[in-house]
């Protein structure tokens, strides 16, 4: 059995990449492989807002990732620079940057590119979805 990590740069609103990554994740978990971390970068970080509210006949990617991550114990990590630039923040970063609110979904964590490097080093495969 292998250990995977994913790098997701696709926007949840305007491309298919997040959905592809989600389906790939379900398939690898079903085969008994381990998933260490999904690292969201670029427009991919937009999925981490708990205020995302897609119409009821569309897939809710924010919640789909959160549910899988909790069930299978892997990390959903968001790049701090990419996130703040796009208005995605947790309470600590909001405080540090004098912002009036926070919107990071509790299943996600904000961190830096070091977490991507670590994921590459500690996984057998890193697959990018953009």
């Amino acid at each position: 059995m292998a250990t995977f990590s994913l790098l997701v740069t696709a926007s949840p609103h305007s491309s298919q990449g997040q959905y592809s990554a989600l389906e790939f994740t379900k398939a690898l978990l079903q085969q008994g492989h381990t998933l260490k971390r999904i690292f969201f970068y670029g427009d991919g970080v937009l999925v981490a807002s708990r205020l995302n509210c897609p119409p009821s006949d569309e897939i809710n990617l924010t919640k789909s990732w959160a549910k899988l991550a909790i069930e299978h114990d892997f990390e959903l990590t968001v790049c701090v620079t990419a996130a703040l630039k796009r208005g995605i923040t947790n309470a600590a970063e909001a405080d540090r940057n004098a912002l009036t609110g926070d919107n990071l979904d509790p299943a996600y964590e904000i961190s830096g590119l070091g977490q991507l490097t670590e994921a590459m080093l500690e996984s057998d495969r890193l697959i990018t979805f953009g």
Binding site: F24, A27, Q31, L126, F129, G130
Partner: peptide
């Protein structure tokens, strides 16, 4: 698709 990523040494997107 998952199997293919393991058959090859690395993937390039």
């Amino acid at each position: 698709f998952v199997q293919l990523t393991l058959q090859y040494d690395k993937t390039v997107t």
